[in-house]
């Protein structure tokens, strides 16, 4: 009986390890998907300064939430640093639209594309999808 339990435990651990991505966290993944979606929304509205000015504070709040979650949820320094780089970019975008002189449409399009591609890489890492 003890031997059977040992075999089952070993099998569960081994298969679990091979399926579950490293550091996978459903909450973190959901927050990152939500943030990516918010960036996409801003990207789609780059043609309208008024729309982006309204959307960027929401984006900034979502980014702050992700930053707090990642800061306290695990010890992975690389992930924290990667998220921090994205947060800084989002803050730059948001600050630019809260300033008196509004940024150009080209800036908005390129900035959101850069942020999206960063988030895509982070999502691939967090979600465990092979690159």
């Amino acid at each position: 009986m003890k031997r059977l339990l040992a075999i089952i435990t070993t099998a569960v651990i081994l298969t679990g390890c091979s399926i579950a991505p490293y550091h996978y966290d459903q909450n973190e993944y959901n927050l990152l998907v939500d943030l990516t979606f918010a960036v996409k929304r801003v990207h789609e509205h780059c043609g309208s300064v008024a729309d982006v000015t309204l959307l960027t504070p929401v984006l900034n709040d979502k980014a702050a939430l992700v930053e707090i979650y990642v800061d306290y949820s695990h010890e992975d320094k690389q992930m924290k640093q990667a998220v921090k780089i994205v947060i800084v970019s989002i803050k730059q975008l948001s600050d630019a639209y809260q300033a008196t002189v509004k940024p150009s449409t080209a800036y908005c399009i390129n900035k959101t594309q850069i942020i999206e591609s960063e988030l895509r890489r982070i999502l691939i890492t967090v979600g465990g999808k092979p690159q």
């Binding site: 780089i85 730059q92 150009s104 080209a106 800036y107 900035k111 850069i114």
Partner: peptide, 17 residues
């Protein structure tokens, strides 16, 4: 000339970070 030099600097810095 669709963006300013400051915007150009910021975006290229982002990519080459």
């Amino acid at each position: 000339k669709q963006m300013s030099q400051q915007e150009y600097d910021e975006l290229t810095n982002d990519v080459l970070n």
